[in-house]
């Protein structure tokens, strides 16, 4: 019973972290599933969004949760313009070159952040940062509960958009049958840019939910993007439901490993799973299914 008293809070904490992982991974898997490219700039964009949320709070006093409604659309636009104005023209539409362009972008963004904001670690002070919700079995920090609910809500909205709107159907059509999509009059370049925008909006929302309990440095994106890649591989490349479940699973694995192996070893579990998945089920849990 004493054991359970430690495990339950750890699992709940893991689920809250996992929801953020899932949201970051959803953006990554959406871009992969439709554009068939791996976006190396994903982590850098997350870092940029964390800084944006940080400065909105410190300079203008805008609460990170309110910033979702500013940074979500702003980063959607940024992603749209990046894909349409930089990534697509610079790569001439070749997948292998897109890879290099996104890698180059991430290096540029990371170093710009380092030059502009130095490498010091920054955090925000929020009145509710240490508030907790009593769930009887465990106490959950309020910002984590908010992050969990909001991340799942964002994932749900994204799913609804893809399932129920014309553009969502067009996105799913382009993902599997690009020529067929062109021939019904879908503007494929617009769809690509929309996906990149949506993927970037996902990291912006994740950043706003993360900031109250996390910190910002120019390197902060790397940790998340590594986990996001693992999540995408675990769930099956390009699978939305896979990314969601994969993110939650990895969040729980991380806290449980942290609990039993020691705080600093939590991520060992994540990468052990990564290797096991690659060895035994390279298509992922939901691989081969349609996006």
């Amino acid at each position: 019973m004493g054991e359970l008293g430690i495990v339950v809070p750890a699992v709940l904490a893991g689920l809250t972290t996992g929801a953020i992982y899932a949201l970051v991974a959803l953006g990554l898997t959406l871009i992969y599933g439709v554009l068939h490219i791996i976006n190396f700039a994903h982590g850098s964009l997350l870092m940029l969004a964390l800084y944006a949320a940080f400065f909105l709070k410190t300079l203008w006093g805008i609460d990170p949760y309110a910033a979702v409604f500013v940074l979500g659309p702003a980063f959607f636009a940024l992603g749209y313009v990046l894909q349409r104005g930089v990534i697509w023209p610079a790569s001439h539409g070749q997948d292998s070159m897109i890879l290099m362009v996104t890698l180059g972008l991430s290096i540029v963004i990371d170093n710009l952040a380092l030059a502009l904001w130095t490498s010091s670690t920054r955090t925000v002070d929020l009145p509710y940062a240490f508030a907790v919700i009593d769930l009887k079995l465990a106490l959950i920090p309020l910002p984590r509960a908010v992050a969990f609910v909001a991340a799942l809500a964002a994932a749900g909205l994204l799913w609804l958009f893809l399932a129920r709107t014309d553009l969502g159907r067009a996105i799913r059509a382009v993902a599997k049958e690009r020529l067929g999509a062109q021939l019904v009059g879908i503007d494929v370049r617009h769809v690509y840019a929309m996906c990149f925008g949506l993927g970037t909006a996902c990291v912006a929302v994740a950043a706003c939910l993360l900031l109250p309990t996390f910190y910002v440095t120019p390197q902060v994106g790397h940790a998340f993007v590594l986990v996001a890649f693992t999540t995408v591989v675990l769930g099956g490349m390009g699978s939305m439901e896979g990314a969601l479940i994969g993110g939650l699973v990895l969040g729980v694995v991380e806290t449980l490993c942290g609990l039993f192996l020691g705080e600093s070893l939590g991520q060992i579990g994540i990468f052990a799973i990564f290797i096991l998945i690659l060895l035994f089920r390279p298509t992922g849990l939901f691989g081969g299914k349609s996006a």
Partner: peptide, 26 residues
Amino acid sequence: LIQVPEGRRVFPNLSVRENLWLGGYR
């Protein structure tokens, strides 16, 4: 000017209804 391509090129991951609906995208 509408082309029905060689090899059908239907959207395999979408339902028949969604395929037809996207046919009228414009």
